[in-house]
Design a protein around this nucleic acid. Structure first.
Lengths: 194, 194
DNA sequence: ATCGATACGGTAGTAAGCTATCAATTACTG
DNA sequence: CAGTAATTGATAGCTTACTACCGTATCGAT
């Protein structure tokens, strides 16, 4: 990470992000930016200098969590041949985060969009999963690469808001992934492409 | 609607809701409450008297739109025997609204939750659709009544945020509904209940 | 027509998000 | 270790959400 920033600036950023995560996590997403700056031991101007507003700060926090908890999963699964369980694992991890970090999510603004943006940065990971899944007959042939981040983002954002119980969440995820099975596209003439 | 309100109060409410819809629609959900009160020809105190905060105001606006555009659809479809097209129509109407009223949605806060709440008020409508759909073999037998509002809310909230093109939206809705087909539950032992 | 309850507008005040400015401090470069 | 450029904290100021209060106007029942 060779940012052009000075070392003290980088340190400030980390302290702000840590404080922001704590403050967002407490409360339900309320929690003033003044408080965050104070807890980070940093002036309010410094906070705004690095993060122009609440949403962008929240996204930076989410970005870090995503990098540490989801990216490893994605890397590991680039090689998998079981698309269903790959997607289920990623979706569950994302849903876990959304469920755990409610305050953060509230500050985030648009969870589905943010989630898809993060997933899109790793679009390369999903492409081979899709190709092999389709070749093996585990994924319906009318899917395209962009569908995967979209469907994951939809599922996760909705579930985070609607379902708090783990078993139920798993059931819905499973249900959604059923839609990706090739039996569907074939079985339902009524369901033809748009 | 025999609310215990005085006639002038009822009139104020309507004018505020109309103004709010206009002001939310312009801009991207920004638009001050002062502006709304002013455009409604009403003091700011009157606005806050009836709608304690921005979110509740937005929800009241959404409520009205929902009542005029979605409820008739639900009533009509209580009698239908084609669950897939019923659900597709409702979902598309909801997605249309979310797409059209972006500013409103932004002010709404939690679209999936709000959508489900509104759908839940008409839970009775879906129950018979589910029963007949399952009897006719058009809906998977492991679904329960509460699944329908949940799935609709998930789909609509995600789509509104992620997809702006009508054809693509239709494709995703169709995809999701494929998950409700009984072929799935049978075809995938791996997918068993949680 | 009267009268009490209800609703109203206006205004003052608090808190938070956010912008802008600037002198003082601190990190890096040679 | 000196000079310079980047970074910082403090502070002042603007806007908007939201609360509280009060005197006045209007509704609606008798």
């Amino acid at each position: 990470m060779a940012t052009g920033l000075r070392s003290d600036a980088r340190a400030s950023i980390v302290r702000i992000l840590d404080a922001a995560r704590r403050v967002f996590a407490a409360g339900d997403g309320t929690g003033t930016l003044d408080r965050i700056a104070q807890e980070a031991g940093v002036g309010i101007a410094t906070l705004y200098r690095h993060f122009p507003n609440r949403q962008l700060l929240a996204r930076a926090v989410y970005d870090r969590i995503f990098a540490s908890e989801v990216e490893p999963l994605l890397a590991e699964f680039g090689r998998s041949d079981a698309p269903r369980s790959v997607l289920l694992d990623v979706a569950e991890r994302l849903a876990d985060i959304a469920d755990r970090e409610r305050g953060l999510v509230a500050a985030l603004g648009n969870l589905p969009k943010v989630t898809r943006e993060f997933l899109d940065r790793h679009g390369d990971t999903f492409a081979p999963v899709l190709v092999r899944g389709q070749a093996a007959g585990n994924l319906r042939p009318d899917m395209v690469a962009a569908d995967i981040p979209n469907i994951l983002a939809m599922a996760v954002a909705g579930l985070g808001a609607l379902v708090n119980d783990g078993a139920t969440r798993r059931r819905y995820l499973s249900l959604m992934l059923d839609a990706l099975n090739p039996a569907q596209a074939a079985a339902l003439p009524e369901a033809g492409r748009a």
